[in-house]
Simulated assay, not measured.
Amino acid sequence: MTGKATFVFSKEYLQYQFSQDHPFNQQRVLMTKELLESTAMLKDQDIVSPRFATDEELRLFHNHSYIEAVKNAGKGKLNKDEGLLYGLGTEDTPIFQNMHEAASLLVGGSLTAVDAVLNGESDHALNLGGGLHHGFKRKASGFCIYNDAAIAIKYIRENYQLKVLYVDTDAHHGDGVQSAFYDDPDVCTFSIHETGRYLFPGTGEVNERGIKEGHGYSFNLPIDAFTQDDSFIEVYESAFKNIAAFFKPDVILTQNGADAHCYDPLTHLCGTMEIYERIPVLAKELAQTYCDGKWIALGGGGYDIWRVVPRAWAQIWNVMKADQIATGDLPKEWLEKWQPKSPLPLPTHWHDSSEAYPVIPRKEEIKEKNNKNLQHLLKYTNTSAS
Rank of each mutant, 00 (worst) to 15 (best):
G108A: 04
L111M: 10
G120D: 07
A53S: 11
D92K: 11
D115K: 08
N127K: 09
A116S: 15
F61Q: 09
G131K: 05
G108Y: 03
H124M: 14
H62K: 09
A116D: 11
R51E: 13
V48I: 15
R59D: 00
I47P: 01
I95T: 10
V29P: 03
M41A: 12
L128K: 01
L58N: 05
L88R: 04
M41S: 13
L84F: 08
A69M: 09
F96W: 10
N98Q: 14
L105D: 04
Y66C: 00
E34Q: 15
N79I: 03
H62D: 09
E121Q: 15
E68Q: 15
E56D: 15
D123R: 12
Q45R: 12
L85A: 14
D123P: 00
R59F: 01
T93G: 06
G74F: 04
D81H: 03
N119P: 00
G120C: 08
T39A: 10
E34D: 14
V107I: 10
G89P: 04
L58T: 06
L84I: 11
G108M: 04
E57P: 05
L84Y: 02
T39P: 07
D115A: 01
M41Y: 13
S65F: 05
P94I: 07
L35V: 09
Y86H: 14
S38K: 07
S65G: 01
N119H: 12
L132W: 11
I67L: 05
S38P: 05
S104V: 05
E37P: 03
K77L: 15
L35F: 09
K80Y: 12
G87K: 02
E101T: 15
I95Y: 01
D92F: 11
G109H: 01
V117Q: 06
V107E: 06
K43C: 10
G89K: 04
G120S: 11
K77F: 08
I47M: 05
E68T: 10
H64Y: 10
G130S: 08
G109N: 03
K71V: 13
A40Y: 14
L106F: 04
A103V: 04
L132T: 08
V29A: 04
T112C: 11
N98A: 12
F61E: 03
H100P: 01
A73I: 03
E37S: 11
H64N: 13
G130D: 02
E68A: 15
A113K: 02
D55I: 12
L88P: 02
A102I: 06
L85T: 14
A69E: 03
L36E: 09
